[in-house]
C-alpha cells in the first residue's frame, strides 16, 4: 500500500514537472498558429523587409522593417549603456570594493533590478525625456536615444549580476599567481581575471541584449511610437514589442492585423530564444573551462 502511494506521488510530481515544457510548447504553437496566416496574404520577404507599416490603412501595408530597425537601434543604444555600466559595476563590486561597500552596493543593484518596467517607463517619460529634449533642443524627448538610456539602465542589473557570478567563478589562485609574479591589481584584473571570466561576461552581455529586445513597457512609453525607419537616434521609433502592445488592443481578432502582430511576436520569440540558447552554450563552456561541472 505504502509503495503504491509512493509511486503515485512520484508520477504525479513527474507529470506536473512537465508543465513548463507544456507552456513553452503551447506558446510556440499559439505563435505559429496565429502568426502564420499573415503569410497567406503577405509574402514573408515583403513582411520582413517591407518598408511601410500601415496596418490600419485601406489597403493595409504590413512591412515590419521599420519595427525591426527600431528594435535594433534601441537595443544597440541600450548595449552602449548597459555593458559599461553593468560590467564595470560588476568588476568594481567583485574586485575593488571592500566588504562594507559590497554589502551595501550589491543589494542596491538588486533593488534596481526589482523596479517594475512601467516605473522605468514612467521615469523616462517625466524626467529623462524632458531633459533630453531641452538638452538637445528637440521637438520631442520621446525618441530612440531616451529609450536606449532607460533600457540600458534597466538591463544593467541583469548584466551586472551575471557578470559578477562569472567573476566569482574565477579561482583566487589565479589572482594570487598573478600577484606573485609581480603584477599589480589592475594588471591582474585586465590580463588574468577578465580573460578568465571572458565567456561568463559575454553570457551576461547576451542575456542583457535578450532582455533589452524583449522589453515592452519602457519602449512603449518612451520610444515615441512612430513606425518609420529611423535615421538617427533622435527620431521617435516604434520597436517590435511596442507595436504589439500598442496595437493588439485595437486589432480585430482573426484579422490580418491581428495575425501580423502574432507574426512579429513569433520573430521576437525566435530571436530571444536563439540568444538564450547561445548564452546557455557559452556559459556551459565557461564552467567546463574553469573546471566546474553543471
Amino acid at each position: 500500500m505504502a509503495r503504491v502511494k509512493e509511486k503515485a506521488i512520484r508520477w504525479t510530481l513527474a507529470a506536473l514537472a512537465f508543465s513548463s515544457l507544456i507552456f513553452l510548447v503551447g506558446i510556440i504553437i499559439v505563435l505559429f498558429k496565429e502568426g502564420l496566416p499573415i503569410f497567406k496574404a503577405v509574402r514573408p520577404g515583403d513582411f520582413i523587409f517591407g518598408k511601410f507599416w500601415y496596418p490600419t490603412y485601406d489597403p493595409p501595408e504590413f512591412g515590419i522593417f521599420p519595427l525591426i530597425m527600431a528594435s535594433m537601434w534601441v537595443t544597440l543604444g541600450a548595449l552602449c549603456v548597459c555593458v559599461p555600466l553593468g560590467v564595470g559595476s560588476a568588476l568594481y563590486l567583485n574586485e575593488i570594493a571592500g566588504f562594507k561597500q559590497r554589502s551595501l552596493l550589491k543589494p542596491a543593484v538588486e533593488v534596481l533590478a526589482s523596479i517594475p518596467s512601467v516605473v522605468y517607463g514612467f521615469f523616462g517619460m517625466v524626467v529623462v525625456a524632458p531633459f533630453v529634449q531641452n538638452l538637445l533642443k528637440l521637438d520631442t524627448g520621446l525618441c530612440a536615444l531616451t529609450a536606449s538610456i532607460i533600457l540600458g539602465v534597466m538591463a544593467t542589473p541583469t548584466v551586472c549580476s551575471i557578470a559578477e557570478d562569472a567573476l566569482n567563478c574565477v579561482p583566487n589562485s589565479f589572482r594570487e599567481a598573478s600577484f606573485a609574479v609581480g603584477a599589480n591589481r589592475w594588471q591582474t584584473l585586465t590580463q588574468v581575471v577578465i580573460p578568465a571570466a571572458g565567456s561568463g561576461i559575454s553570457t551576461a552581455v547576451i542575456l542583457g541584449i535578450s532582455r533589452a529586445i524583449g522589453e515592452t513597457m519602457t519602449v512603449l512609453m518612451v520610444a515615441g511610437g512612430s513606425a518609420v525607419i529611423p535615421k538617427s537616434f533622435l527620431d521617435p521609433v516604434r520597436p517590435m514589442t511596442s507595436a504589439i502592445a500598442a496595437e493588439m488592443g485595437e486589432a480585430p481578432v482573426g484579422g490580418l492585423h491581428y495575425h501580423s502582430l502574432f507574426a512579429i511576436a513569433l520573430i521576437l520569440f525566435i530571436v530571444t530564444f536563439v540568444f538564450n540558447i547561445i548564452a546557455e552554450l557559452v556559459s556551459r563552456k565557461f564552467r567546463i573551462r574553469l573546471g566546474q561541472s553543471g
Binding site: 513548463s20 506558446i27 505563435l31 524583449g214 504589439i244 511576436a265 520569440f269 546557455e280
Partner: peptide, 20 residues
C-alpha cells in the same frame, strides 16, 4: 524549457494569454 520560458519576452506571454 524552464530556462527558455524564463527568457520569453513578457509581451509574448500576454499574446499567449490572449489567444488561449
Amino acid at each position: 524549457s524552464i530556462n527558455n520560458l524564463a527568457g520569453v519576452p513578457s509581451v509574448v506571454f500576454g499574446l499567449f494569454g490572449l489567444a488561449v
